[in-house]
């Protein structure tokens, strides 16, 4: 390896390591703290590795008032979001991948532009409209907003997925006796399933982590992040650690499985045509 190349490599790895630590250290500290006995959290000097593994902190968090209820809300909202998003996003992605229609490129760009609207800007009008429609403080209402947020990603990811399923396969199914819809169900869908599962996980995580809209649009039916956000100021330190760690679990877990498909998304947005 030549010297400049070696240097470039070294710098690259140093940069990557620094970046990884930047992300991982807080997660590590939160994880460690949430399995440390509550009284030890306040100890000083603080040991890097806790003296014993303890579930007390987590237990305290989960038994706190409102946590289980908001956890149930969060899961319901995420599942509703997932259902809405896939019901609309997957057909949209299929259409963009398969059919050439007037305005297709504009549509693909337009999808991304919707993500540029700051939710803060829409918060008040949204709250007013939701009150009018009777959606305020309902799980469906929150799920609808989360769907709006997740939909652009879902369309882009599913476009990439369906582009990866050759058109020939569906046409072959059609010549073998399938209708267009039958060909989709029997051939395109099974082949797209792993990718669609990844898109579903991604959607779930977007909804699970969303805090701003959920806080503004609910009062009693809080989702977990909204509940934590509104109670965190008045909570002990170990409650915050446990809550923070609990929130990261699904994201960590899902991202590990779907990271391959996230490349689909970026590739699908620019390179593939």
């Amino acid at each position: 390896m030549s010297y400049p190349r070696l240097l470039r490599r070294t710098l690259l790895y140093i940069g990557a390591t620094a970046f990884a630590l930047w992300v991982l250290i807080p997660i590590f500290l939160i994880a460690i703290s949430s399995f440390t006995p509550p009284n030890e959290i306040y100890a000083w000097p603080k040991p890097i590795i806790p003296s014993r593994f303890s579930l007390d902190t987590m237990r305290f968090f989960l038994n706190s008032y409102g946590v289980l209820n908001s956890l149930r809300n969060s899961i319901l909202v995420a599942l509703l979001t997932l259902a809405f998003t896939l019901a609309v996003g997957a057909p949209a992605g299929y259409a963009v991948a398969r059919f050439s229609f007037r305005g297709r490129e504009a549509f693909r760009l337009g999808i991304l532009i919707t993500r540029m609207f700051p939710t803060a800007l829409l918060a008040v009008p949204l709250a007013v409209t939701f009150i009018k429609w009777g959606l305020y403080d309902t799980l469906i209402g929150v799920a609808l907003i989360h769907t709006a947020m997740a939909l652009p990603f879902a369309v882009i990811i599913t476009t990439g997925i369906f582009m990866g399923v050759p058109k020939d396969l569906e046409e072959a199914a059609m010549t073998l006796g399938c209708s267009r819809f039958g060909a989709f169900v029997r051939v395109a869908l099974p082949l797209a399933l792993p990718g669609l599962a990844a898109a579903a996980m991604f959607t779930f995580v977007i909804s699970w982590n969303e805090v701003f809209a959920a806080t503004i649009l609910t009062v009693n039916n809080r989702t977990l992040p909204a509940h934590i956000l509104t109670t965190i100021q008045a909570s002990p330190l170990y409650f915050r650690f446990a809550g923070g760690f609990f929130m990261t679990i699904p994201a960590l877990f899902f991202m590990f499985f779907i990271r391959r498909y996230l490349f689909h998304m970026w590739g699908g947005a620019t390179a593939e045509r």
């Binding site: 020939d168 046409e171 072959a172 059609m174 073998l176």
Partner: peptide, 15 residues
């Protein structure tokens, strides 16, 4: 539609 034409097809990509 293709399914009602009594045809069968072999594709270039085999499909």
């Amino acid at each position: 539609p293709p399914s009602k034409r009594g045809i069968a097809m072999v594709f270039q990509s085999y499909a």
